[in-house]
């Protein structure tokens, strides 16, 4: 096993936490009930998202460059192209594809309509469960991965429940 393989695993662990923080902050930033000024919560969400993208990029680049796992660049972008733990790797590949699309549309937000950007951005919600499923299916050689996935799940679920509970009902009279 090479150093690249260990970097792959460590970037996956820290990246999972960063993705969880990114989604949690995204949920909180979009909530009308949040007491934090929106410009602050959105800036924090963007910064953490940049960190998560950097860690995921490092994870993908190192796993593809490492000869320990026989993966090609095609395997890293096309789901089910890899033979190594095909289902778990495909879920991770799908997550990377979603992340690329969401990040690209966020960078091009000024050139898109708000409706189009929001529609694409909401698919980012799928990114987080994909990342957790990928970690649980592929990261089977280390117990810490399960704890990290569990630790990342708690704030996301708490934020989602809080937002669902604080959102006004459709029929509410204001």
């Amino acid at each position: 096993m090479s150093l690249l393989w260990e970097v792959t695993r460590s970037t996956a662990m820290v990246g999972t936490l960063a993705l969880s923080a990114m989604v949690t902050l995204g949920v909180l930033a979009a909530s009308p009930a949040s007491r934090i000024p929106r410009f602050l919560s959105q800036a924090l969400h963007r910064n953490v998202a940049a960190l998560a993208v950097a860690l995921v990029t490092a994870h993908v680049v190192t796993v593809l460059a490492d000869p320990y796992v026989p993966l090609t660049w095609t395997d890293g972008l096309v789901p089910f192209a890899a033979s190594y733990k095909s289902v778990g790797t495909a879920i991770g590949t799908l997550g990377v594809d979603v992340l690329v699309v969401v990040a690209a549309t966020s960078l091009l937000r000024g050139r898109m309509t708000h409706r189009a950007w929001r529609t694409v951005h909401l698919t980012g919600y799928a990114l987080w469960p994909l990342a957790i499923a990928h970690g649980l299916l592929v990261g089977t050689d280390n117990q810490a991965v399960r704890w990290i996935c569990l630790g990342g799940t708690a704030p996301v679920l708490a934020a989602a429940l809080w937002r669902a509970g604080s959102a006004p009902s459709p029929g509410a009279v204001r």
Binding site: V7, R9, S10, T11, M13, V14, P37, L40, N47, L55
Partner: peptide, 24 residues
């Protein structure tokens, strides 16, 4: 507020990189 936020996230980024190195 934004300057403080960027400084904080910069520190968090460095901490994340340090954690990655330590785990490696």
């Amino acid at each position: 507020a934004l300057r403080t936020l960027h400084l904080t996230t910069g520190i968090v980024t460095v901490a994340a990189m340090g954690a990655t190195g330590a785990i490696t």
